[in-house]
C-alpha cells in the first residue's frame, strides 16, 4: 500500500500485544455476576438467614450438601463463590497502580490473579471431593 513517507518511522515501531483480554473477560463476567447476584446473596446468607427472617432450614446442611453433591449444584456454587474474585482481584491489581504503587507490577499481578486462582482451585477441589464421595 502507498503510505506517506512520514509514517515510515512509526511503522518500524514494535507493538506488543497485551494479555489483558483474558483477565478483562473474567473481570467483566465476574463484575456482571456481582452486579446482579451479590446483593441478593449477601441479603440471604449474611442477613435474612442469620437473623432468622428466613428459616435456617432453607440453608440446612442436608439441603446444601445435597445440592453441592450434584454436578450442576457444584458448578453453580463454584461460579457464585469464585468468579467474583476474578473481578475484584483485577480491580485491586489496577487500584494498586492508581495508588502509585508502581514497584514490582509483575509480582503484584502474580499475587492478585494467583490469589483468585488459588481460591478457585480450593473451592473446586472441595466441591469435587463432595461430588465423588
Amino acid at each position: 500500500m502507498n503510505v506517506q513517507p512520514t509514517t515510515n518511522a512509526l511503522q518500524e515501531k514494535k507493538y506488543i500485544r497485551s494479555n489483558e483480554p483474558v483477565f478483562w473477560g473474567l473481570f467483566g463476567a465476574g463484575g456482571m455476576l456481582t452486579a446482579f447476584l451479590t446483593p441478593v446473596m449477601v441479603l440471604v446468607t449474611g442477613l435474612l438467614i442469620p437473623l432468622g427472617i428466613i428459616d435456617a432450614d432453607h440453608l440446612s446442611y442436608d439441603k446444601l450438601h445435597g445440592f453441592a453433591s450434584s454436578w450442576y449444584g457444584a458448578a453453580i456454587i463454584l461460579v457464585l463463590v469464585a468468579l467474583p474474585l476474578w473481578h475484584t482481584l483485577h480491580r485491586i491489581f489496577h487500584s494498586l497502580h492508581d495508588l502509585g504503587i508502581k514497584r514490582g507490577r509483575d509480582w503484584q499481578q502474580v499475587i492478585c490473579y494467583g490469589f483468585a486462582f488459588a481460591v478457585s482451585v480450593f473451592v473446586f477441589t472441595l466441591l469435587l471431593q463432595m461430588l465423588t464421595q
Partner: peptide, 17 residues
C-alpha cells in the same frame, strides 16, 4: 469487601465439606 464476602462463602464450602 466483595473479596472478603467471597472468602466467607469459600470458607462455608470448606465447612460444608
Amino acid at each position: 469487601f466483595i473479596t472478603l464476602y467471597s472468602l466467607i462463602l469459600a470458607w462455608g464450602v470448606f465447612r460444608l465439606s
